[in-house]
Simulated assay, not measured.
Amino acid sequence: MDGFQAYGAGKAGQAFDPLTFIRQPQTVMRILCWLFSMVILACVANEGYVNRPEEVEEFCVFNRNQHACNYAVAMGTLCFLCSSCFLALDVYFPQISAVNDRKKAVMADIGVSALWSLIWFVGFCFLANQWQFSNSEDNPLDEGADAARATIVFSFFSIFTWALQGLLGVYKFKLGADSVTFNQDYVDPNQQEPVEAPPTEE
């Protein structure tokens, strides 16, 4: 079948079209997830730690809680790597010939997206709580305040970008399952065995 589709992609071996790939909603959401993780990582790594003149060691702007900054840095780094890997998988996905392998890739995308949405929800709540209880006396010059607020905001945005990514994966899974079922039930009339004509009476 020329129009065969399995899990949102056509037959393997077709030419890759960058313009069509960039315009796909799943690609747009993937790039947003990648950008948000970069913003969070850059904000905390560059301005998330400050120090007072009388102190030698730097402390985290989130209520002097090192775990808050470590959480943001770790999640930003892992999310960046994860987004990059799945973006590469999206590029390679149309070249996967086995339907079962495509199914596994889509299911992995759904599971990972749901997990990251949950992780960023926890991170948003944790960072917002620590910022709320931060003592202004620890940071009288309000250093890193903008970076801290940006980290919280983009953590909040990341919840929805990953959730939407998961919903797009579910849609892709349902669409793929339907198309595969249709393809399995389809029988090419040209490949059917010819029916023998009954013998004629002499």
Rank of each mutant, 00 (worst) to 15 (best):
G76E: 08
L115F: 15
A105T: 15
P53C: 08
E58I: 02
L81A: 09
V99G: 00
F93C: 02
V73C: 06
K103F: 06
T77S: 08
M107T: 07
K104H: 00
S97T: 14
L118S: 05
R52N: 11
C85N: 06
W120Y: 14
V73S: 13
D109S: 12
C69D: 13
N70K: 14
S84I: 08
C69N: 11
C69A: 15
A108W: 09
A72M: 05
A98R: 11
A105R: 04
S113Q: 08
L87S: 12
C79Y: 11
V112P: 00
F93Y: 12
L78Y: 05
C82A: 13
F59N: 01
M75R: 00
F80H: 10
E58D: 07
G48Y: 03
F86Y: 14
F93M: 04
M107A: 06
A108K: 12
Q95W: 14
F86G: 11
L87N: 07
A105C: 14
I119V: 09
A68P: 15
V112G: 00
A74E: 09
V106S: 03
K103R: 03
K104T: 04
I110W: 03
A88W: 10
A88R: 12
L81E: 12
N51A: 07
H67P: 04
N100T: 04
N51R: 12
S117H: 02
F59L: 05
F59Y: 03
H67A: 15
V50Q: 01
R102L: 08
W120D: 05
F86I: 15
I119G: 01
V112R: 08
W116L: 15
S113L: 13
V106Y: 03
R52M: 05
S117V: 01
N46S: 13
V56W: 09
D101H: 15
T77I: 13
N100F: 03
N63E: 04
A74R: 03
N51P: 03
A74H: 04
F80A: 04
E55I: 06
P94W: 03
W120E: 12
N100R: 11
N63F: 11
P94M: 01
G111K: 11
M75P: 00
F86V: 15
Y49T: 00
F93D: 02
S117L: 00
F86D: 14
S113H: 09
A105N: 04
S113G: 07
F59S: 01
A72Q: 07
